[in-house]
Amino acid sequence: MLSKRIIPCLDVKNGRTVKGVNFNNLMDAGDPVQLAYEYYKQGADELVLLDITATLEGRETFINVVKDVAKAISIPFTVGGGISKPEQVEALLKAGADKVSINSAALQNPNLITTLANAFGSQCVVVAIDAINNQGNWEVVSHSGTKETIWDPFEWAKKAESLGAGEILLTSYSSDGTQMGYAIDLTAKISESLKIPVIASGGAGCKEHFLEVLTLGKADAALAAGVFHFGKLSIKEVKQYLNDNGIVIRL
């Protein structure tokens, strides 16, 4: 039996975790390596590290964070943020990352997905899709939600799969940060239409939301950030709750 996965996400800027972090037992809650280790020990199934730095110096710092995280944990992790070239992917994989997520660059040049899949294997190419609900219609946005695109997420997800993506990281920008629950219908429709796994993201606020997206939402994995960072929920209690409600989950 395959377990559903619970995946905390860390946003890293200039080598530090951003978004508020509230762990009493951490000496330095801004250190992504320490935080990654803490999540690993709590039972996270994978991690995602997003580099939200814009500068070149910041990017070099990020590579060092990836190296240190790889040394600290023994579970898979995905890195993303500003990836557009095979050389960047090679450097990140060499630093110890297992997968990379690409987003805006894939929308600009969909063949990038195939290039990366051929060079490094589909299993390490995660295509991140950011969607917003525009008066009932789902639309794909790029550049952290600042730009419109021609795609609807259902078509774009199918296209990404056919080009060689190994996994889809689907974020509802309409629910991200709200802690009001995942976009269930969007996630279910995309997950059902694909052969590759779908990670749901955006909106987790309580244990029930995880259960909902892994059942009704048909997601293979659920990603969350704020709800874990602020200490509102621990990974352990979420996984215990899912297990108690009949979800196949690694405890």
Partner: peptide
Amino acid sequence: KCPHMGWNRITNSKSPLFKGINDNAW
């Protein structure tokens, strides 16, 4: 879903390779 990606339960034999690993480990 394919690839088979994530944590899966296993059943193992008494091989030395799996010494100390629970049957049904993930």
